[in-house]
Amino acid sequence: IIAEHFMSIRHCLMAKSADAVIKTAMSHPQALGQCRHFLRANGIIPVAYADTAAAAAFVAANDDPSAAAIAPPIAAALYGLVAINDAVQDDMSNMTRFVVLSRAPVDRSTLTGTLMTTLIFEVKNIPAALYKAMGGFATNGVNMTKLESYQNGASFAATEFFADIEGAPGDPAVDRALEELRFHCNSVRLLGTYTQTRNRG
């Protein structure tokens, strides 16, 4: 990971005609979930589809005037649909974070501002392993802004964690925290260091 980008999410209800009586709305399940209050309030039946753009293309290619799609506003122009409502998401502050990947890491000397580091680690399968692994970040004052857990396979024998921290290897506090983390883990993998583009506070 060499960079991050935050994008505001805007869902648009689009159909073949502006005066259509909409009965169904097709979209990716996640987009439908982000618009569920709007759909319920308007009596529109959600229909899951592979992705938002494909849903718009499907509505454009078919003759059902009561069918609509929920997709980014640009999809209406791309597929010749009419934007009926260009902000149907339930949470107007919804954002998606994207990361930029590269085969080569970024040169840390070129980075400015607050730095972020993303890592994956697998704790040992012993009592209080996660508590002990997190202790190094707390005692060294390293702010962890994200922590997600994943089961490794179907064995339930080990849990992996995906984490974002403020700081970078080479910072004494981060180095001490990572050293303590490695002591309590089976594995630690750094995925990248990059400039923070949005304050986590």
Rank of each mutant, 00 (worst) to 15 (best):
I2E: 03
H5N: 10
I9V: 08
R10W: 07
R10I: 14
M14D: 02
A15Q: 00
D19W: 09
A20D: 01
A20L: 04
K23T: 06
P29G: 06
Q30V: 13
Q30D: 15
G33Y: 05
Q34S: 14
F38Y: 15
L39D: 02
G43K: 14
I44L: 13
A50Q: 14
A53T: 05
A53S: 13
A54V: 03
A57D: 06
V59Q: 01
A61M: 08
A61R: 04
D64E: 05
A76F: 00
A77I: 10
L78R: 07
L78Y: 05
Y79E: 01
Y79P: 00
L81T: 01
A83W: 02
S93A: 15
T96V: 15
T96C: 15
F98Y: 15
S102N: 12
R103G: 10
V106S: 08
D107A: 15
T110M: 06
G113F: 08
T114R: 09
M116S: 03
T118C: 13
L119K: 01
F121D: 00
N125S: 15
A128D: 14
A128N: 14
F137T: 00
A138L: 09
G141Y: 10
E148V: 12
S149F: 12
N152T: 15
A154Q: 15
F156V: 12
F156G: 06
A157F: 13
T159M: 10
D164W: 05
G170C: 13
G170T: 08
D171R: 03
P172Y: 13
A173K: 01
V174C: 03
V174P: 00
E179M: 12
C185S: 06
C185P: 00
L191F: 05
G192L: 00
T193H: 00
T193F: 01
T195A: 02
R198V: 11
